[in-house]
């Protein structure tokens, strides 16, 4: 399991490298733990260390229509945008393998990754300007969903595309000499091995969309808020333990769902490896 060659190459630098890595991991752990800790305060201010222990703020959040509505709105937006991004990103990755010209291939690839580099606020202003020009979009979620989809496409594309690159390039010609039409090749030969990557891309895209706040700032119809936007405004207006309680809950939900998915896929991979080893 441990990599002897790399260990030997690193030599005695291993200890300091690990030490720095562990210190860096505090950058990830500590803020999260502080958020969690302050959420169970029994006082009415966010304080660290928390005073007392109570779950009253969780109760407040869970019975507050505003928090719940914004949570569901986020779910709806994320589900639609993720579904669209998964389809578009997967099609793009598959389509790219059919492009013959190397130069064109590079441009298409660049285009599909580009939204990662797009500054969200500037893009949001663009979508907002579209809404101003087309007033019938004004009170809808169309531009928000469209924008979130665009921001999510690169993640799906990147994952599926790299899975495709690792596959056997002769499967497609093989299937075509065996008489399969291109839709059948796509459906029966190419897609099945990609499913794990597509699922990974789906989860990634979903978290990206669910957490995205900048587009919501400008694009939501008045009176509606996604969860991150609700958090954002709450942090600027009323910095109360409600906020950290909500943060904790949504983070734990994400950890349970994504961690569960990770665990399942790890187990499947390991099982597949063991089966292969057993029969070899």
């Amino acid at each position: 399991m441990t990599d002897r060659s790399l260990l030997r190459a690193i030599g005695w630098y291993r200890a300091p490298v690990i030490a720095v890595g562990l210190l860096a991991s505090l950058l990830f752990f500590v803020p999260f733990l502080v958020v969690v800790a302050t959420s169970w305060t029994s006082g009415s201010f966010i304080l660290f260390p928390p005073t007392g222990f109570s779950l009253q703020w969780y109760e407040t959040v869970l019975t507050d229509r505003q928090w719940l509505n914004s949570f569901w709105l986020s779910i709806v937006v994320a589900v639609i945008a993720t579904a669209a991004a998964v389809v578009l990103g997967t099609l793009g990755a598959l389509g790219l393998t059919r492009v013959r010209s190397r130069a064109l291939q590079r441009w298409v690839r660049t285009l599909f990754i580009a939204p990662i580099a797009l500054p969200p606020i500037a893009y949001a202003v663009g979508l907002w300007s579209v809404d101003r020009q087309l007033p019938f979009l004004d009170d809808t979620l169309v531009s928000l969903v469209l924008g979130e989809t665009l921001l999510a496409v690169p993640y799906v594309f990147a994952l599926v595309s790299s899975a495709l690159a690792g596959g056997d390039p002769s499967l497609r010609p093989a299937a075509s000499t065996l008489g399969a039409s291109w839709p059948m090749i796509l459906w029966r030969i190419e897609l099945p091995p990609l499913l794990p990557s597509i699922l990974g891309g789906t989860l990634f895209a979903f978290t990206v969309v669910f957490d995205e706040v900048v587009l919501s700032v400008l694009l939501l119809p008045p009176g509606t808020q996604t969860l991150p936007l609700k958090m954002f405004t709450a942090s600027q207006e009323a910095f109360s333990p409600e906020l950290t309680a909500a943060s904790t809950m949504v983070s734990l939900l994400a950890i349970v769902v994504l961690g569960g998915a990770q665990l399942v896929s790890n187990r499947r991979n390991r099982a597949a490896r063991l089966r292969r080893k057993a029969s070899a």
């Binding site: 002769s170 499967l171 010609p173 093989a174 075509s176 000499t177 065996l178 008489g179 039409s181």
Partner: peptide, 14 residues
Amino acid sequence: PRKRGVGVVFQSYA
């Protein structure tokens, strides 16, 4: 290829 009625064994077996 799919209408030629050929059988191919690929180098990687595919």
